[in-house]
């Protein structure tokens, strides 16, 4: 796995359309098709991951679109095997930005008289009645995912990222490290701790 370095603040623009002028139009078209295929294959999973991380569908769509645009614009000329970690690195940064803004907004709202903070509101998920009655047999599909999503919110951001990228997106350790901007050892640690926390939380819920 080649080393992938990402600078999401980079403004250097890669002139992909240059190919049409210097006789490499075919290469340019091939690359456009390859990018289309890559994005088509990744967009739904990326959206679901962004949804889980952001807990906001509209913001998740914006984040995915933004990551697509930045990948095409800034890294479209990189080798194809680098696109996936690069894309998730961009998406991760976008998610982090959103979470920071949200934190500031919540802090401001907490000082605003008469405003109820989001944390103070009852969690509709917690108060919802389980239509199947006892949640003691097994957790299936959507229900399991809903529980995991809830527990993921309680993890540290690094643990959550490691879990989402390793487990849900299926990146290997090296790719996850490239996407998270940390060492492979850190990825293993964060992922293991995330799995451990989820395992404990879901066991307690099953009791």
């Amino acid at each position: 796995m080649p080393e992938v370095r990402v600078d999401c603040s980079a403004t250097l623009e890669v002139p992909l359309s240059l190919g049409s002028r210097d006789g490499t139009r075919e290469n340019s078209v091939d690359r456009e098709r390859a990018l289309d295929r890559f994005l088509a294959g990744i967009e739904r999973r990326a959206f679901r991951i962004a949804c889980i991380a952001l807990r906001d569908r509209a913001e998740a769509e914006d984040a995915v679109q933004d990551a697509m645009i930045r990948l095409v614009r800034n890294y479209g000329r990189r080798p194809e095997d680098q696109w996936r970690p690069l894309f998730y690195r961009i998406l991760k940064n976008r998610i982090t930005d959103f979470q920071r803004r949200l934190k500031v907004r919540r802090a401001v709202m907490a000082w605003w008289p008469g405003q109820e903070s989001e944390e103070a509101r009852p969690d509709p998920f917690e108060s919802a009645v389980d239509p199947r009655g006892r949640p003691d047999e097994h957790l299936e599909g959507a229900e399991l995912l809903a529980r995991i999503e809830k527990q993921l919110a309680a993890l540290s951001s690094r643990q959550r990222e490691a879990f989402l990228l390793r487990n849900f997106e299926g990146l290997d350790v090296a790719q996850t490290a490239a996407a998270m901007g940390c060492s492979e050892g850190s990825v293993k640690t964060h992922y293991f701790r995330a799995m451990q926390a989820l395992d404990v939380a879901l066991r307690e819920w099953k009791k």
Partner: peptide
Amino acid sequence: LARARAKALEGLKGR
């Protein structure tokens, strides 16, 4: 999402 992808790829044209 498909529209978002198309929009991202538009960036390749006319740049």
